[in-house]
Design a protein around this nucleic acid. Structure first.
Length: 231
DNA sequence: GCCCAGGTGGGTA
DNA sequence: TACCCACATGGG
């Protein structure tokens, strides 16, 4: 029994990231920082109604106006600055073209994204994977919570160590990593809250006492294909 | 009313 | 390096 298979069986296909365009993925990745997705949706709808879902529009509008639009997502003054910082970066480095940006080698682009104000490891990796289909595994609060409760990772959030472990132990497939992270987030939302009240019906419950491998190591390529993987 | 949510940056020791 | 804290709205 494996994590991916249990979550996938319980939840079905995730079809992530919920966004219409790669630029919307990036907007959402910034706005969802420490914020529930429902609030992010309200902010994105405000941006859509104001025709602000393009880099050039964000560069033209006043930051105070931008802040008012993203207000429902919380930290709205900070996030307005962050959205602008990314739009400025994109224009400066890639003439405003996401296509050009995503042609950059993964690790080079990752470092450049991390240099942008407001883009940390999780946001950078969400952008790389979900907007650019680059092979990086996104680690978030749910990943830490679920896998540390299962004794798979340490208690302390060490982003790079956890990321390296997942990337090393899972088959190198952006599609698989995309689906896996989506399953982790939804499993977290549904069952693995800070309070353990709902822990009992968690689909991962059968794995709880054991120290099971994450996924592949033992996931033979000639066994049943994984839902969401391209194999 | 209180807790929490798909983090990040800045400051201090 | 390792903590602290600010940032802020909306739903349970």
């Amino acid at each position: 029994m494996r994590y991916y298979e249990l979550m996938s069986a319980a939840l079905g296909p995730m079809n992530w990231w919920p966004a219409k365009t790669p630029f919307e993925v990036i907007i959402g990745a910034i706005l969802t920082q420490s914020t529930s997705w429902g609030n992010v949706e309200l902010a994105i709808e405000n941006l859509r109604a104001a025709q602000m879902l393009t880099p050039s529009a964000i560069l033209k509008v006043r930051t105070s106006k931008l802040a008012a639009l993203v207000r429902p997502s919380g930290y709205f003054r900070q996030k307005a600055k962050k959205l602008r910082a990314f739009a400025q970066f994109l224009k400066r480095e890639y003439d405003g073209s996401l296509e050009r940006m995503f042609q950059t080698p993964t690790l080079v682009l990752r470092e450049k994204l991390l240099s942008v104000h407001g883009i940390g490891p999780e946001t950078a990796d969400s952008i790389l994977l979900y907007a650019g289909n680059h092979p990086v595994f996104v680690v978030d609060a749910y990943t830490h919570r679920i896998f540390s409760r299962h004794g798979i990772t340490g208690g302390r959030p060490e982003y790079e160590a956890v990321r390296a472990r997942f990337e090393g132990e899972l088959p190198r497939s952006p599609q698989l990593w995309n689906e896996f992270h989506a399953l982790i987030v939804n499993t977290g939302k549904n069952w693995c809250r800070k309070s353990v009240a709902r822990c009992t019906d968690c689909p991962l419950r059968p794995l709880l006492p054991a120290n099971s491998p994450l996924l592949p190591l033992a996931a033979a390529p000639d066994s049943t294909p994984l839902p969401g993987s391209i194999a």
